[in-house]
């Protein structure tokens, strides 16, 4: 009995330390600015346009990724080929490499003097110091969240469901759109939300490709280095609050989706 209660005690203490470690800075950050200060900051043209731009860039990155990552996820989940593990590893690399390194890597391809940069400049699209640069930086580093979720979702679908559809006369495309895609919708949605939320906070890769126009993380960084803690705090608090709201919504959608799934799997 004593052993058990000691064990519980240790677990509780360790858990509380970690919870405090996360909550304390966030609470201090938000509580450190008065409501009026927050409102004033949001009203600043530079701040709200930056936040809006950040949300928009991450949204564009996510939507583009859905069209590219969902087919790849289906391919990875359904087709075995030599080197598949290698490809899956590569696709997850952006998450683990230092993000400024990711930004520099992107620059060597999308920079104005490099091949993709040149190619896209034919369509009047350039990346360095442009909105499109924020988009590809966000896309590069946060796409794996969507891809992994989508792969996992496709793998969870019994391939015999798709075979049953084929035997009923469905073409491979019909099978994908009528069976695999609807059954994986919840994973794709939660993966997209995760990717979007992760993209919002990106700094390292974005700052290399596009210091201007500013994204939220860059603006926070600039205010901190130019004006100090006091000026960077309110905008940080606003980003945290925005992320918090998104995260709560994401969790709500997720649980709702998975409860639908539970029902469908029963």
């Amino acid at each position: 009995m004593i052993k058990k209660s000691l064990f519980n005690f240790v677990i509780t203490i360790l858990s509380l330390i970690l919870i405090f470690f996360v909550i304390a800075p966030i609470f201090k950050l938000i509580a450190g600015s008065s409501v009026n200060m927050l409102l004033d900051t949001v009203k600043e043209r530079e701040v709200y346009s930056t936040i809006l731009r950040t949300f928009k860039a991450s949204l564009v990155a996510t939507v583009v990724s859905i069209f590219l990552a969902v087919p790849l996820a289906y391919f990875l989940a359904r087709i075995n080929f030599p080197g598949k593990v290698f490809i899956e590893g590569i696709m997850n690399l952006p998450v683990i490499i230092p993000h400024p390194a990711a930004g520099i890597a992107l620059l060597t391809v999308f920079g104005n003097r490099f091949f993709l940069g040149k190619f896209f400049s034919n369509f009047g699209l350039s990346f360095v110091g442009e909105f499109a640069g924020i988009v590809i930086a966000m896309m590069f580093v946060s796409m794996p969240f969507l891809l992994n979720d989508a792969v996992e979702g496709f793998r969870a679908i019994d391939p015999r469901l798709e075979r049953a559809a084929r035997s009923l006369g469905a073409s491979p495309a019909q099978t994908f759109f009528k069976i695999a895609l609807p059954l994986n919708l919840s994973h794709i949605i939660s993966g997209s939300l995760m990717m979007w939320a992760r993209g919002l906070s990106e700094f390292g890769a974005v700052v290399i490709l596009a210091y201007h126009p500013m994204s939220a993380s860059v603006l926070i960084y600039e205010r901190f280095t130019s004006f100090g803690l006091k000026y960077s705090q309110p905008i940080s608090a606003i980003m945290v609050l925005a992320s918090l709201i998104i995260f709560v919504v994401l969790r709500l959608v997720n649980t709702k989706m998975s409860s639908i799934e539970d029902r469908t799997e029963g």
């Binding site: 019994d158 015999r160 469901l161 075979r163 049953a164 559809a165 084929r166 035997s167 009923l168 006369g169 469905a170 073409s171 069976i179 609807p182 059954l183 469908t264 799997e265």
Partner: peptide, 20 residues
């Protein structure tokens, strides 16, 4: 021939009804 060209219906052991 691909499955959809064969007109052969298959019923799996655990039915494989489309859950959605």
């Amino acid at each position: 021939y691909s499955p959809e060209e064969r007109k052969i219906g298959m019923v799996y052991q655990d039915y494989m009804l489309f859950p959605h």
